[in-house]
Amino acid sequence: MGKFKDLFVKRHTEFSPFYRWHHWIRFFSIIFLIISGFYIAYPFLSPEVDPNPTGFLYAKGRTFHEIAGFIMISMFIGKMYYFFFVKSDRDEMRSFKDLFSVKKWMKQIGYYLLISKHPVLSGAYNVLQLVAYLALYLMLTFLIITGLILYMHVYHDSFLAFLNTPLTYLEVMFGGLASVREIHHVLTWGIIVFIIAHVYMSVFNAIYGKEGTIDSIVSGYKWEIPESEK
């Protein structure tokens, strides 16, 4: 194998089946939400001017945006439950410990600046990663709330009727429906930037950190060189 030496590597489970499934369902729903969202904001596709009834393209775009939205919300709720209540997932919680360590911060930034070794982590995520994820969840929360407020004025019954009072309160707090719509749009850009950075970081860590972790989100496994082999 040329300059590579043969190593004995340990396989351990990095992501549970739930974690992987939720990740990919969420990924595809978010991608669809972004594309259909931009279409709703500015309908770049229009049918030819035609006197006959058309396929109701815009209404369909909105419908599927809403469906994808509810899929995304259910994944959000599922992941929240997983994060707070599932015992085998305590690793995520443990990451918070590192937030208060200046050394871990310095080392982590140093690692990304390619000048120091990766710090040993207390939990699943490093500090920068954790802060990025917290920002993601904050953005998602506001996207969900603003999305529901916008949906409330399209569909008035059942679940949305139940949420009407609190959502109306929030609508006024955001400064009216137009502001709600604007916040929804601006936060989407935050999500786009997050996705790009997230994918790059995963690839970077998998290659540069020699952990092959890009597979783990599909297979669930992570490959590690045991201490005895180093």
Binding site: P43, L45, S46, P47, V49, P53, T54, G55, F56, L57, Y58, A59, G61, R62
Partner: peptide, 9 residues
Amino acid sequence: HFDAGEFVQ
């Protein structure tokens, strides 16, 4: 026309 995606450009 909104739902049909028929817009004044």
